[in-house]
Design a protein around this nucleic acid. Structure first.
Length: 498
RNA sequence: GAGGCGCUAGCUCAGUCGGUAGAGCAACUGCCUUUUAAGCAGUGGGUCCGGGGUUCGAUCCCCCGGCGCCUCACCA
């Protein structure tokens, strides 16, 4: 009788209308759920049937006339139920038969084992808790093989809730993300780090090389930038006497989107007074191996068809040595940009003199070297020019005490001995500011207050940043960062959903 | 931002060398009281991403646009 007969949504709306007419509320306010499904399954004893009341979504339904099997699923798991007219009563059973896949129901009854040996609930009473009027994709499974998986990437990201309802792998991956994030927090807390929250809206763009999102505060009548990194605030806290701090939260960078980049991404930044970049390497290594052992029981983890060994100690190789090893180019011996250009061109890279020696070196590294680091590798001792916030070696001012960690060819972490010399920092800021004036949109701005903070004295400090989304990619074995972010940024599709 | 690929039923996908479309699952109707990718019989369901062009006729060919994916560039 609907306007569009055959349309599943209209059919279900009709069902709702009928229920309302007969005084049944398809969206009741409350249900006394007494048991979690996983607990019911775990506690099952064939010789001792127990009364249970579970709640969840109907995930499957197999009706055989006057009796029926189905599965309800809650967050903890899934269980089969057996609904029979003789037990439920004719009216209740008829109503149950109108319920659809995706409906939330409360199921009460006694546990029993079917002839085929499946733990089930013999339904005494089944009540609708929330009607699902949208047709769910039907994903079936047998012997671990998944049929008709809901696989349209666009729909998965746009309607993540549907993805979570029907695809077990998605649910598992995000559960894993949650657990890893809390594992990281636990690890840091156990190591006496204090979690802090610093501003997300900055008036100065600094702390990393990236283009910011710009926003505006009405009352103050000023431009603000969404933070690209919390770094400078966290170091202010070290100045303030918090010796070990971390912040695990979102950064925003107005850059491209691809399998490794989302404009908002999660980063943990960690600062430790009286430590240097070597201590940060140890900390990083311990964190990763602790997580691997916790979640896999081993440091060998599968990733995209390969096995990565996270077992320490990890390889440490100097920036210039790594480039030399892979390409034969020794940047420590190169004296002029022209020389660097010709070396880079020899291996087929497009660069020009204005980049300077070290940006060219960085280009060579990114193009030819990084992908060779499959197992964890600390790339250390960066050139000063590429690192405006890191401290130089006492005996070699051209290089800084910094490392980046690569796993599976991807940058996973960045750390250094923090530059705490206010005079040096001021000079570096001025250099950045000049680059900015010359059109480098990613160069930092001068943060005068930060210089003032340094003038109060930042103790020798090690700092470390780890990209959480990328770490998760590793642990849930996915090739795209979007599979680790519940709601990745997409363009609006311009269509009305539904 | 550039190039390549894709977009067909609620989902997963066929297909039309240009004559306005089909399967499986889901839905609806009937049968079925131990099924589990339940089964059997029948039915309905589509602006074939949008707009324009070519054509007697376009879902298909051409152009423009939208969204997604992949590769590249920037970046973590």
């Amino acid at each position: 009788m609907s306007e569009k007969p055959g349309d599943i949504r209209s059919q279900r709306i009709e069902k709702i209308e009928k229920m309302r007419e007969s005084g049944i509320n398809p969206y009741p306010n409350r249900y006394e759920r007494k048991d979690r499904i996983a607990d019911v399954v775990a506690a099952f004893d064939e010789t001792k049937p127990v009364k249970v009341a579970v709640a969840g979504r109907i995930k499957s339904k197999r009706v055989m006339g006057k009796a029926s099997f189905g599965n309800v699923e809650d967050f903890s798991g899934s269980i089969q139920f057996y609904a029979a007219r003789d037990i439920m009563g004719e009216e209740e059973y008829a109503l149950y038969k109108t319920h659809d896949l995706g409906d939330h129901v409360g199921v009460e009854g006694e546990t029993f084992l079917t002839q085929k040996g499946e733990i089930s609930i013999k339904v005494k009473k089944l009540v609708l808790l929330s009607k699902c009027i949208q047709p769910l994709p039907v994903v079936k499974e047998k012997d671990g093989q998944v049929f008709d998986e809901f696989s349209d990437t666009e729909l998965k990201y746009r309607h993540r809730y549907v993805d979570l309802i029907v695809n077990q792998k998605t649910r598992k991956d995000f559960l894993m993300r949650s657990k890893i994030v809390s594992g990281i927090r636990r690890f840091l807390e156990e190591n006496d780090f204090l979690e802090v929250e610093t501003p997300m809206m900055h008036s100065v763009v600094s702390g990393a090389a990236a283009r910011p999102f710009v926003t505006y505060h009405n009352t103050l009548d000023m431009e603000l930038f969404l933070r690209i990194a919390p770094e400078l605030y966290l170091k202010r806290l070290i100045v303030g006497g918090f010796e070990r701090v971390f912040e695990m939260n979102r950064n925003f960078r107005n850059e491209g989107i691809d399998t490794r980049h989302n404009p908002e991404f999660t980063m943990v930044e960690i600062y430790q007074a009286y430590a240097d970049y070597n201590d940060m390497m140890d900390l990083t290594e311990r964190l990763f191996t602790t997580l691997a052992e916790q979640f896999f029981g081993t440091t060998d983890i599968p990733y995209q068809g390969e096995t990565l060994s996270l077992k320490g100690p990890w390889r440490r190789v100097r920036f210039v040595d790594a480039i030399k090893e892979v390409t034969g180019i020794d940047f420590s011996a190169i004296k002029s940009p022209a020389e660097a250009v010709s070396a880079a061109r020899k291996i087929g890279l497009e660069v020009d003199e204005s980049m300077g020696i070290w940006k060219i070196a960085d280009e060579v590294l990114g193009e030819r070297v990084e992908k060779t680091f499959q197992n964890p590798t600390f790339l250390t001792d960066y050139p000063k020019e590429l690192s405006p916030l890191s401290k130089s070696f006492e005996d070699n001012p051209d290089y800084v005490e910094r490392f980046e960690l690569f796993i599976a060819g991807r940058e996973m972490a960045n750390a250094f001995t923090e530059l705490n010399d206010p005079f040096d920092q001021k000079e570096r800021f001025e250099g950045q500011s000049k680059m900015r004036d010359e059109g480098d949109a990613e160069a930092m701005m001068i943060d005068d207050d930060y210089i003032t903070a340094l003038e109060y004295g930042l103790p020798p400090t090690g700092g470390l940043g780890i990209g959480i989304d990328r770490l998760i990619m590793l642990f849930v074995d996915t090739a795209s960062i979007k599979d680790t972010i519940l709601f990745p940024l997409l363009r609006p599709d311009g269509q009305q959903d539904i």
